[in-house]
Write a protein that binds this DNA or RNA. Structure first.
Lengths: 346, 346
DNA sequence: GTTAGCACTCTAAGTGATTGAGTGCTAAAT
DNA sequence: ATTTAGCACTCAATCACTTAGAGTGCTAAC
């Protein structure tokens, strides 16, 4: 168990390191006004903290640096509730004051503000197809054997795909199919579209359509890829300003990871509710060994819709980041729920 | 004027430097089998070439490095027509053998192959709205005051926008407008959609719609932003492997530029036809001072649709890059023209 | 339990000295 | 009139060495 003084020293050390990115020595700590005891005492305490694994030396006669265990302890026990500056609050709220119509634009802007306020990289997982429901489906022919299929969700999200039409399937068949789909599939969540379609429509289709089998495989192909939600970024290169990323290979690794949506998608899936912090090795991607990620969720009517996250070095300003992130997640939840209400009760 | 031997030496020097990225000395050149004269002779020639500005020294006793003027001369006069390896040709042609339906996918894949073959960063400007024409327009209501507008082009490109509907405009009004639009605006190029709409539809709308003014401003807002064509990337971080980009600040500058579509858009607009090479300072973006860009256009029925480009260090493999780029541009042109034909004569 | 003091460690920065790749120039060879 | 061998010279890069400074751990005194 840590003594009061050890807690205090650990906190000072981490705060200092977060600011300077330089190993912190006993003298540096002892020079602070609010420290009454001498550097020798601090040295003793530091030795204990090191033995317990909360801090490390970079070499045998260097100052101390927080270990991942140390950061974890710091985040879990030493953070006081964050206070946002007026500037930050204004900045975020002015975003939502604009009341943009398009969900995607709201999200893109949120990512921008987040990265600007924090100088880290912000990542937002768009609303999951999970909760959004089909409003309408349209098929528009392009040539004799191709057509565009357009799905519109109640959130305003539009999804489109081009497909080839087998020669054996006629236009009137397709029209029939679309009509049936609009009848049967309206308000079905996008995520379960495929399974619902297979169940609900099989019998009806068999009755009305000649080349049932061909139409069926066509439809199956169409919904083969349940589109993963989109990943939005803000300040993709902000993290390059951090001194821990002067190594170009690390940078390459990280930026490449950004390009792989599926990977990022998994990184952002939070395991618990609320604001979560993953420190260094805790997220097992090699590219993110020196990074921490703070994630928060946003909701619509209590249902989780997506996540917003900040990516920084392990030495990141946890308190501030968590504050800003939490605040923005809240506003996002409120705004989106409002929008959703207006759609639902219409 | 350059003598035969000077040409030869310049060529050897640039070839060598492109491979090694190290300054080339007289001894290195003299050791080649096909060089009969001594290093001293070469030193004299190098001094002349330097005086003429084709090569430079990095310091007073270093080997020589091509200057931008040197590269320019090399590209304009010293390149033999490129020969593609079987591997490269196969790689590109297998791409088009798949005959993907969606233009965007073809382009995305092209970017991927380009960057893989060259290890540079590839950039592709999507088909201009320029030539694609409106096939159909749809408005789908989302709530009592919002709706999604969907434009489908004959290329299969889908464009969508969410908009607010003023309370004074009724649904039936909107339906009328959409009908009129589909009648009057079909096959109008997307780029002139706005102007055509204003001209063609003004009188008709006035006749049929009550709140003409409100509808009009609504439509105007809708088409306010003529969407610039999309920019696609392949191997965004490839360029980071080049030794000239070990400086993190240069990297940041460049990657940030990538994020700004409008800027890239201008970079890629070629000035002349065919394959164009811009070397170093020739493209006046600060972020690209150490880069060269090779661009080529692709066409549909002789009309320029977009460009594809390779971005590398000034010390780039011009011959190979130009070869691959030209070949792919050709195949792209052929494929897209075929597709277009099938749409047109349908 | 705390602290002053001291020996010790290690990095970072600076200083020569050395090496080697390269040049330019001159005088001899072709 | 070229070409080339030879030589003096330059400069970056590297290595060994020193020094300064920040930091530690330990011990003995407070």
């Amino acid at each position: 168990m840590l003594t009061e003084r050890q807690l205090f020293i650990l906190q000072l050390l981490i705060n200092d390191y977060i600011q300077t990115a330089e190993p912190v020595g006993s003298r540096t700590i002892s020079k602070r006004e609010d420290v009454t005891f001498s550097s020798a005492t601090i040295r003793n305490e530091l030795a204990d903290l090191e033995e317990m694994g909360y801090i490390e030396k970079t070499h045998s006669s260097s100052g101390r640096v927080p270990s991942e265990k140390g950061y974890r302890f710091y985040v879990d026990n030493l953070l006081s509730p964050p206070v946002l500056s007026k500037y930050e609050v204004n900045n975020i709220q002015s975003l939502f004051a604009e009341r943009m119509v398009e969900v995607e634009k709201v999200i893109q802007q949120s990512a921008g503000i987040l990265s600007e306020l924090t100088q880290y990289t912000s990542i937002i997982l768009g609303p999951e197809v999970f909760e959004t429901k089909l409003r309408q489906i349209q098929i528009i022919p392009l040539s004799k054997d191709t057509a565009v299929v357009i799905l519109v969700a109640d959130s305003g999200h539009v999804e489109n795909r081009t497909m080839k039409i087998p020669p054996s399937v006629s236009m009137s068949d397709i029209e029939k199919v679309v009509n049936i789909m609009n009848e049967r599939l309206k308000d079905v969540p996008l995520i379960s579209l495929k399974s619902t379609m297979m169940k609900e429509m099989a019998t009806v289709l068999k009755k009305h359509i000649e080349n049932y089998n061909e139409v069926n495989t066509m439809l199956e192909n169409l919904f083969l890829y349940t589109n993963a939600e989109k990943v939005y970024y803000g300040g993709k290169t902000n993290i390059l300003t951090q001194p821990e990323f002067k190594d170009i290979d690390k940078v390459r690794l990280l930026l490449n990871t950004f390009e792989q949506d599926e990977v990022m998608y998994n990184v952002l899936r939070p395991e618990k509710n609320g604001i979560e912090v993953k420190i260094g090795q805790e997220n097992d991607l090699e590219a993110m060994q020196n990074c921490s990620i703070v994630t928060a969720d946003y909701f619509i009517e209590g249902k989780r819709m997506g996540s917003i996250a900040l990516l920084g070095p392990t030495r990141m300003e946890y308190q501030r980041s968590m504050g800003i992130l939490g605040f923005l997640a809240n506003d996002l939840t409120r705004t989106l729920t409002d929008r959703y209400q207006s759609f639902k009760h219409w």
